[in-house]
């Protein structure tokens, strides 16, 4: 039975690789080093290069999307990591027992909100606040760069962080909760305070799960599409120059550029998007496997069941 999913995965990968071959032949290594994503003029006569057909003046490089993905994901982790640890400590140490369950359920409910709703909130609420209240203040305290729009790295990073906090918190909080009672009482019995229990038992003893949970959150942030598409600014052919810059991610670019790729008769636009998807799948797979390997199945059980 276990062979069936393996076979399906193999078929999926073979399909992706097969579809990406024209793009690999056309772009070669520059796919990874160029930041220009030019769909080309699909109405002009196509050109032939390395035995494949491509639209006139087309060229495909993932660098701007790759950089955007790293920056927004990194920004999200930077926010989500301390917040998740704070929430986990709060749930495990300072929340009365009768509120623990509702509190955890609330955190998990946030994980179930469709990403388009986060995106909507980002566009309507977050972007204006960033543009009019937060960015001018940041500039005042010394951040460099040109403020263009509320959309961009900050909006995308913040929305992503809000989306992954429930996942990261669930893993960390669960592993803190599963720390043996004897250890916590051991610290209390020596005259330790709640903070010392949190520091030595809940934090000190769950480092692996904290790293693993964060990696799982990273995996989610890497693949998140809809919300990022709405608030990143989805800029193309520009590398970010400051914290205020607009950006774009690999997943959002695939979603945004797919329909016009169908109008390219040479199929090269589609092939390049598939190659982009292939790279994204590989990155996500590595991050997720790493996260799972570190956390171990036991610590994940509570959150997977919910």
């Amino acid at each position: 039975m276990a062979l069936v999913p393996m076979a399906i995965m193999l078929i999926l990968f073979s399909f992706l690789i097969y579809k990406a071959i024209p793009s690999m032949r056309y772009t070669g290594f520059s796919f990874f080093t160029s930041y220009l994503w030019y769909p080309g003029n699909v109405y002009a006569n196509p050109i032939s290069f390395h035995g494949v057909m491509a639209p006139y003046r087309s060229s495909f490089g993932l660098l701007s999307f790759f950089v955007g993905t790293l920056i927004t994901t990194g920004f999200a982790i930077l926010i989500a990591f301390p917040v998740s640890i704070f929430l986990s400590l709060t749930i495990n140490l300072y929340t009365p027992d009768r509120l623990k369950r509702p509190f955890s359920v609330l955190v998990e409910l946030f994980a179930g909100i469709p990403s388009v709703v986060y995106g909507l909130w980002g566009v309507i609420v977050l972007e204006p606040v960033l543009l009019h209240n937060i960015m001018p203040w940041m500039k005042y305290v010394g951040f460099q760069g040109q403020i263009i729009s509320g959309a961009g790295i900050m909006a995308a990073g913040l929305i992503l962080s809000i989306m992954i906090i429930p996942i990261v918190t669930a893993v960390i909080s669960e592993s803190m909760h599963s720390q043996p009672r004897e250890l916590k009482e051991g610290v209390y019995a020596l005259g330790g305070t709640k903070w010392e229990v949190g520091k030595h038992v809940l934090l000190g003893n769950t480092r692996k799960q904290i790293v693993g949970g964060t990696l799982l959150g990273t995996g989610r942030a890497l693949g998140e599409t809809m919300a990022v598409l709405m608030v990143s600014g989805s800029i193309v052919n520009v590398l970010p120059t400051s914290i205020f810059s607009l950006t774009n991610t690999m997943s959002a670019q695939i979603a945004a550029a797919l329909d016009s790729a169908f109008i390219d008769g040479t199929g090269m636009n589609l092939s390049a998007l598939v190659e982009l998807g292939l790279v994204l799948v590989l990155i996500s797979l590595i991050v997720n496997l790493a996260g799972r390997a570190i956390v171990g199945r036991g610590a994940l059980r509570g959150f997977e069941n919910d």
């Binding site: 769909p39 080309g40 006139y56 800029i235 052919n237 016009s260």
Partner: peptide, 17 residues
Amino acid sequence: VGFGTNVNWPSVPAAVT
């Protein structure tokens, strides 16, 4: 640049989409 449903947008740092 030419025309199409998606084009080779020139790099304009201030551009928004």
